[in-house]
Design a protein around this nucleic acid. Structure first.
Lengths: 197, 197
DNA sequence: TAGCCTAGAGAACGATCGTTCTCCGCGCCA
DNA sequence: TGGCGCGGAGAACGATCGTTCTCTAGGCTA
């Protein structure tokens, strides 16, 4: 097993275990068992648990935003801001959905680990940047405020869906986003039609 | 020290420590030290950490909703749904603000503790009930959907404010709520004026 | 004043944590 | 083929966890 594969296995195991059970509830030995990588190699590649947690968050950030962007890119430009919420609804329906990995990690470790806190802030900032681009491309003249509102709606939908265990919050957030986009933009984004349902 | 005072001191210590550092990062002995209540009495009143955590969440739920309702009740009926976000903004500015205690606890313990998960769900359900009453009293003919949207906005604002460390998300959420209320209601709730600023 | 119940202080217990160390077996180079 | 070094398995270490137990001091009743 080369280094790249070991890293991949470790981060795969870390992601599924940390996301499902929380960071503190998962010991390093459990990650060794799930990954099949020895403890020695684990500590060679990630010299402490905090480093592994940060690496887990940063890789998840890239993958999560990549999956979102790939879905959204299949929609016409004017429909893309609302398509974000369609993608969220699909995500909420997945059996292992457990809320926002970043908010969960921040709540658990934010005060104790500056590295984790920064990774979480970076993720949220990137998402806001991405949403701002979508809103601007959809024709809203001043995209900043609306993108911020959409980001708040998305975060709220994620946490609500996690706690209730149902994906309904995505629909409510989508409808709210449609109203906000129509109120703020010169384009009738809300009328561009639901991508799903 | 009688039982009531011991309970109060234990829950005070549990709340400040669990909320600031997370549940798993705080040991029972630290709660003993912060409360001044002996370990023996602690376990007499709360026979396990999970019981203490659930009691902490349920007391915080009552206090949190009580403080919100007390603030909102000082505003005219039509302005109350938006006053919720003014109260959030004040809360976000407090130095010990650390996000939503319930979402944090759920992210940390939700999959491992059904009692905690239920306490979190109960809290969110009570908040939604409260918001629905506010929206109905403000004259919106069908308050359910809008109240759900406001709940999503509030949760999103809380998590965004926690991660960014700034209270600006409350303003964005308030503006979004104003648009949604005006779009849905027969009353010009958005025009009832900001309570602050 | 003598005996008993309660409560507090803190040691003790077994488990588990993050991290390091030991030991052993297998593959590479002379 | 023989010595060497890297990697895996897992024991070991010190710390800390949730929980229980021991010991002692003090207030109440007879």
């Amino acid at each position: 097993m080369d280094i790249a594969e070991a890293d991949g296995r470790l981060l795969d195991a870390a992601e599924s275990l940390f996301y499902e059970h929380g960071v503190q509830a998962v010991g390093m030995d459990r990650i060794r068992a799930a990954s099949g990588v020895s403890l020695k190699r684990l500590y060679q590649r990630f010299p402490s648990k905090e480093v592994l947690v940060e690496a887990y968050l940063r890789r998840r950030d890239e993958r999560w935003r990549g999956a979102l962007a790939a879905y959204v890119a299949t929609c016409p430009v004017a429909a893309r801001p609302l398509a974000v919420f369609d993608w969220l609804e699909e995500w909420f329906g997945e059996p292992d959905f457990r809320g926002c990995a970043f908010i969960n990690a921040y709540g658990e470790l934010g005060t104790g680990s500056p590295a984790v806190a920064e990774a979480v802030r970076d993720h949220k900032a990137e998402v806001l940047r991405y949403l701002t681009g979508l809103v601007r491309a959809a024709g809203v003249p001043e995209p900043g405020p609306v993108a911020g509102q959409l980001a708040v709606l998305a975060d709220g939908a994620i946490t609500t869906a996690a706690v209730t265990g149902t994906p309904g919050a995505a629909r409510r957030a989508r409808e709210a986003a449609a109203v906000l986009l129509e109120a703020a933009g010169g384009v009738t984004a809300a009328e561009s039609g639901p991508v799903r349902g």
